[in-house]
Amino acid sequence: MEKQLIISIGREFGSGGHEIAEILAKHYGLNLYDKNLLQEIANEKSVEVKNLEKYDEVPRNLFMTRTVKGYSNSAEENLANMQFDYLRKKAESGESFVVVGRCSEDVLKKYPGTISIFILGDWESKVDRVVRIYGMNRDEAETFMVRQDKKRKNYHNYYCKGKWGDSRNYDVSINSSKLGEDVTAEMLIDYIDRRQNKH
């Protein structure tokens, strides 16, 4: 791939956004960065990845932390900034990749090769998916979905000017429930190819 391509995927919980990201990464032969970012950072910093996981995509606790002269004592904020810096470093190197979450549509928007996508879904379809994948009953699935999306929204909106899920902040917003993950991915591939060929 001659031109840099960075595919940023935001997603509602249960929408199949991660699966779509995997399909896109496989199609284009690109690295996929998601939770594996933590392992990369842990390796760089010589720390155990399990020590980072509890702070991943969690907003800073404003009551328990403070910033002095630009330095924060918030583990959540420090980890978020390490991930943002890691993604910027990858983008600066010219690497093409797919990234899920991590405020990437905002963090990487200055790079011309970035295409930002938000995957949403119908409530019933998302509940059915969570029940099937996580083995929960319906009530558990609904509670889990609400909690996960609230966590993602709070994290995103703390670090970004644009609001999580607001279609104006993404190149494409698409409901994966209408046609399923495979066909949704096919449509996105067509869009990405057209964008790549435009310049």
Rank of each mutant, 00 (worst) to 15 (best):
G113Y: 10
I41Q: 01
V99Y: 06
M145T: 02
T143E: 10
E105P: 12
G70L: 04
N43Q: 10
M187T: 15
L62Q: 09
E186H: 10
K161W: 09
K109P: 11
Y159E: 00
Q83L: 08
Y86A: 11
E57F: 08
E44C: 04
W123D: 13
R152H: 03
Q196N: 15
M64Q: 08
I192A: 09
F97Y: 12
W164I: 02
S176V: 01
E44P: 12
I41G: 13
Q39R: 08
Y86F: 11
L79D: 06
N197G: 12
Y33V: 09
V146G: 04
G10V: 13
E48N: 14
V107M: 10
G94Q: 05
N61E: 05
F144L: 04
E124G: 01
E48D: 14
G101M: 15
Y155L: 00
T114G: 13
N43K: 06
V127H: 01
G70N: 07
G10S: 12
Q39N: 15
G16P: 04
G180W: 02
V98T: 07
P112G: 07
V49S: 09
V100H: 03
D34R: 14
I23C: 09
R11Y: 14
V100Y: 03
G180K: 05
I117P: 05
W123R: 11
K89H: 13
R11M: 03
Y155T: 00
K26W: 06
K69M: 08
K35Q: 07
K69D: 00
M136G: 11
R195M: 11
N157C: 04
G162N: 10
S176W: 05
A91R: 03
V131M: 02
L37A: 04
E124Y: 01
D34F: 11
L37E: 03
G29I: 00
L38C: 14
Q83M: 11
T184P: 11
S8T: 14
L108Q: 04
E186W: 14
E53G: 10
H18D: 04
G14I: 00
K163I: 11
S167A: 13
D166K: 07
E140P: 05
N51S: 07
T184Q: 07
I192F: 11
L24I: 01
K198Y: 03
S176K: 03
N197E: 09
V172E: 04
A25H: 08
G180D: 01
R132E: 09
E105T: 07
D193L: 08
K110L: 14
K153F: 08
N81D: 06
R147E: 03
L32P: 09
R129Y: 02
S125Y: 06
V127W: 00
E19F: 01
Y134V: 08
E48R: 14
R194F: 06
T65W: 01
V130F: 01
T184I: 05
K50R: 10
Y28N: 07
F63C: 03
V99C: 03
M1H: 15
A141Q: 02
A141E: 04
W123C: 12
V58E: 02
M187P: 11
K163F: 13
M136N: 09
K50C: 12
N137F: 12
V98C: 04
S177R: 02
G121Y: 07
K126R: 02
R102Y: 02
Y134C: 02
N61A: 06
I9A: 05
E77Q: 09
E181D: 13
E95G: 08
L87M: 05
K161S: 07
I6F: 15
V172S: 05
W164A: 12
V47N: 15
K3P: 06
W123T: 08
I20R: 03
